[in-house]
Design a protein around this nucleic acid. Sequence first.
DNA 1: AACTGATTGTGATTTTTATCACAGATGCAT
DNA 2: ATGCATCTGTGATAAAAATCACAATCAGTT
Lengths: 226, 226
Amino acid sequence: MIKHNCKECKLKAAATCHLTNDEFLDLENNSVSVQFKKGESIIKQHALSLNVAYLRSGMAKVHMQGPTRDKILRVVNAPTFLGLPTSFGEKINQFSVTAINDAEVCFIDLGIFRNLIFSNGKFAYELIVELCRNELNDYLRYASLAQKQIPGLVAETLLCFADKIYHKDQFHMPLTRTEMGDLIGTSRESVSRVLSEMSQDKIIAIDAGMFSILNKEVLSNISDKG
Amino acid sequence: MIKHNCKECKLKAAATCHLTNDEFLDLENNSVSVQFKKGESIIKQHALSLNVAYLRSGMAKVHMQGPTRDKILRVVNAPTFLGLPTSFGEKINQFSVTAINDAEVCFIDLGIFRNLIFSNGKFAYELIVELCRNELNDYLRYASLAQKQIPGLVAETLLCFADKIYHKDQFHMPLTRTEMGDLIGTSRESVSRVLSEMSQDKIIAIDAGMFSILNKEVLSNISDKG
DNA sequence: AACTGATTGTGATTTTTATCACAGATGCAT
DNA sequence: ATGCATCTGTGATAAAAATCACAATCAGTT
């Protein structure tokens, strides 16, 4: 077991702000920190769910096998809990989580975690708030997914990476074209075509995986009007 | 204020099983029960969120204004909490909830509800489980939405109404064709066409809003293969 | 540096779905 | 019962996207 200090995560996760020293000790003694390389599976669909996972650093995709292909449900950024829904909703994992960058994940014993919820109302409350925020975010994305066409969805995705994840207009895209397709619900070819067109129109520039947003106004426009 | 007894709801909502008598009294004194007719708005997008709503009886649609049209996020059946995500995630409602049958809704003061979470870990835990289950359900639906074509989605929706909501193969469809389209992310015309074809093929029968599933095996097949 | 497999771009074609247009049906209020 | 508004079904057409096919590029390994 890698030596780790749960209190370190205090600043990063709202929920853990409310834990006492004893509760932190309890957490530390019942959790393990594990390193993952890009592409490695953190949580596997159909496997038994025995732990709550907490992404300490790195990025991951939450995805499941859909009717015809893989469906990426969301891309998440540390720090965040992973797989709460699967841990509390079902015994068997209903989705997978895979690292899309090198990542560090803490696995916490489910029983211990449950006890924290029982005994520490503020911790439980913050968890509920996080779950609710996630759900709202999902709702907005799914409304877009259902109604925008592909250029709008690609634009929305690029803006999300720039604004929500990397906080700058130039970033390395960690997803392949196929994965971008799985995220927005289309084929890799369609994603390619839209990106090509946006490059030709000087709205974005792509250089070996490095994406630059050149004309944010137009990109936002494409995203908004769908 | 209509006189109501919160303990009555005990059997219906897992979360409230864990409340003490004092907590029930507190709930009763800080909540109101309201009747809604079909079509009336229970929670309104963009309005301030001041209460947690609990659907005691009836059905409702959770929906929001999407980029081009209305998007129905889910159809819910009593008993269930309504609008938890909006209450805890944002001050302003991010979506609407509208009755699709006559319904009875209890509005609970948000502060009181928060205190229950703080002070009663088991109550909080059951809420977390409910939120997680909902999220899993949504994930499955969204994977379908992204990948199935319209006949598959219509079939899935009909099976869901029969199996999950009405628990029988003949039921009154409470949604219009337009609403069914908003739910599965397509136009009312496409829904109409698919239903016509299914009727011609004797897979279903429709008589003035009464839907009957005649050949469940074929319908499941259409749903599965997309 | 050469090899291998994964990834990407793009044209041609087919399939699916949206949109438009309009007629008919239905439900509700007076 | 009448009238009005909403809902529904269906054909014709247009638009969007999937699929297929294949070449080119890239990344990591030996």
